[in-house]
Design a protein around this nucleic acid. Structure first.
Lengths: 229, 229
DNA sequence: TCAAAAGTGTTGATCCTACACCCATGT
DNA sequence: ACATGGGTGTAGGATCAACACTTTTGA
């Protein structure tokens, strides 16, 4: 057991995992706590940072262990360190947020013995610790970041329609957008690759499927281009 | 001496302090380290987080102790936790940045026995630890945040001229702006209070002095207004 | 043939950019 | 009188917001 001259806060990472399902519903993953404190309540995935891993590695490891998620978009959100946020001890938590698509990434919610489920954003129960606050921060970040960075594509399948992309923005911003103006804006950036494919088995005109051209985006960005919706 | 079941990284806060002097030069405060590691090299102010203070309180305390600065704009920047960023030990650092005006806030650089100086951004020496990276992150944040939030006023004296405000943006963005367009944009937001005062002892036409109307800004923001330069 | 979503252009208003001269002050 | 920065308006181009109908597909 290590001893230190001065007491140290303990350090955790916690992760808000946003997932978009086939019906374009935005959800987050919550885990039911099976030990005190807050036993039986819902919390976001997370855990202690080990000595031999970076913060990002810790977040990825926890995601992998608790949800089986791999290869995910992950970004640091904010560090929460108020006194009393954990009733046992002084705990500082570096929060991350992740974006995944639930159609292509089959996430087995329950892995350990623990219960883990996807909750629609509109039906989030009261959360353990200060996880409500972390979630609020993550939603705010997502709302503003999706405007200036092409991170929305992380939530969609690799091939997607323009209507799906528009609906994603409408869901996240909670307001409707004009279809023609949205398409003009997006297509004028010239960052979508027309796959030549269309939807199948839809009982209406089949929409074209596009891919986000990340290579092109990175090139343009180097030259000073700014993504903005 | 406390003992823990598992080893814990130690936790520090570090702070990039931006100061704007009378000549509108943008500087940051650096402290010469008087103990290993990196003894004799320059570093940004910072120190360990105590058990009975929040992260922000720790940052404010360190600023007060090392530079005498009080009542300062302070915002969390990013948390740095790579392995090996401190050669002694695993240290995770929550970085903050602060903005102050050096004309009205007389900052006694040297307080402890330690040497502390203001360095112009163009003449920053090689820094200890990963402080170069922290500085880069802070500059990038400042550049983008000043566009969408009225934080530039924190660097100016309470009363300032439009030319001073414009020069501040030019310095931070490292490009020149059109005088007439800049004034139109800023004044059209109707957030500057005309103090009725003018400059004194200048060998040219005296410029009007303005104040940022924070109360009005907060009201407008509530109604959905977005500051943007 | 019906329902449901895909796809497509124009117009007026607004905002942005580029640009040059006179004014007030201290030396 | 001169040097220095303060202060002001306009016009053309680009961008944004508002708006409705035809097309394709499966049931």
């Amino acid at each position: 057991m290590p001893t230190y001259k001065y007491p140290r806060p303990s350090l955790t990472v916690d992760c808000i995992v946003f997932g978009l399902d086939a019906e374009l519903e935005l959800k987050i993953m919550l885990i039911k706590r099976d030990i005190p404190p807050f036993e039986g309540e819902w919390a976001i995935p997370g855990g202690f940072v080990r000595m031999d891993e970076t913060l990002e590695q810790a977040a990825l490891r926890e995601l992998q262990e608790e949800t089986g998620i791999q290869n995910v978009f992950l970004e640091q959100l904010y560090t929460f360190g108020d006194l009393g946020r954990d009733p046992r001890d002084r705990v500082v938590s570096v929060a991350y947020y992740a974006l995944i698509n639930l159609v292509e990434q089959k996430v087995q919610a329950s892995t350990d013995a623990r219960e883990a489920y996807w909750f629609p954003l509109s039906k989030i129960p009261k959360l353990a610790f200060d996880h409500d606050q972390i979630l609020q921060t993550a939603i705010t970040r997502l709302r503003s970041k999706i405007r200036y960075e092409p991170i929305g594509f992380e939530l969609l399948p690799r091939n997607f329609t323009l209507s799906q992309l528009q609906k994603l923005y409408e869901i996240i911003w909670n307001r409707s957008l004009d279809k023609r103006n949205f398409r003009k804006k997006i297509l004028s950036m010239d960052l979508l690759l027309d796959t030549g494919e269309v939807q199948h088995n839809v009982s209406h005109r089949a929409a074209k499927l596009y891919q986000f051209d990340e290579t092109k985006y990175l090139q343009l960005k180097d030259k000073g281009f700014n993504f903005e919706v």
